[in-house]
Design a protein around this nucleic acid. Sequence first.
DNA 1: TTGACTGCAAACGATTTGCAATTGC
DNA 2: GCAATTGCAAATCGTTTGCAGTCAA
Lengths: 150, 150
Amino acid sequence: MAKPLTKEQLEQTMQQFVTACKQAGLKVTHQRTEIYRHLLLEPDHPSAEILHKRLLPSLPSISLDTVYRTLTTLEQHGLVSRIQTAESQARFEAVYAPHHHLICSRCKRVVDFQWPAIDRLDLPADVSNWGQIDSKTIVVYGTCMHCAGH
Amino acid sequence: MAKPLTKEQLEQTMQQFVTACKQAGLKVTHQRTEIYRHLLLEPDHPSAEILHKRLLPSLPSISLDTVYRTLTTLEQHGLVSRIQTAESQARFEAVYAPHHHLICSRCKRVVDFQWPAIDRLDLPADVSNWGQIDSKTIVVYGTCMHCAGH
DNA sequence: TTGACTGCAAACGATTTGCAATTGC
DNA sequence: GCAATTGCAAATCGTTTGCAGTCAA
């Protein structure tokens, strides 16, 4: 279900990120690459605050508002997505292959899963009257094994 | 896609609400019934603030914090649900039949739709290793007809 | 060099809280 | 009458913003 990137995949994705930034007219700053790299390294949908804490050891001077600003900028350029939870803090992830979310109601941890069968399935007919569809994501709520006890 | 309640359905649902409150040991206050009634009357997933504005004509003294507190209380008792959007303000709805959400990226309006085919479908096998599933909801992002232009 | 980006501090908006008065049971 | 609930005001939390200095191109 989870998918840690290999060293090569990480390098390659970082290269693509740099290219995408340049194409978008965004400057490739140390802060931006580090933020993106950490999103890839620990793809557990961290909040801006958590991400900031993770960045401090390698970038002691980075400020929380830069993290916020960068995530917002990258989101606007489709490189990062802000995910929908019922919590107060927003959570972020690097954009990649279509996937869905399992959210534990207790620990609030978000885990990705794939469900190709759904991705292929067409929405009900009457939805097409509503408008133009961009994405569909399944959000599953429950209690994870860890929280359930054993 | 949308489903306004008939007068009888509204009455009946309100009765069930009162019963559920009593069963949960919650006092049936005027504020609580009005909040719940308005969620049923205009099932457009209002934010606490919008709901508060709607309540003011009939309950001029109701405060915004009571609306927040009540929604949180009712949510804890499973009578209301807080829905997941990528916005800063939370949105709420009365709990009822399983349904899914269409969210317009421009106007942020949330519309319900049914998709029984999905409700029946089992999740991928490996998800069962994750834990106990409570609910699954599809969140569809796109641009509604109204915003798209014609 | 120069405009985009950053860090700082202060502002902001959404939501929560402590407390005294009020109300349902 | 008593505990739960409310309204008020103030506090809190997450996030955004103005500004002056800094850095990638």
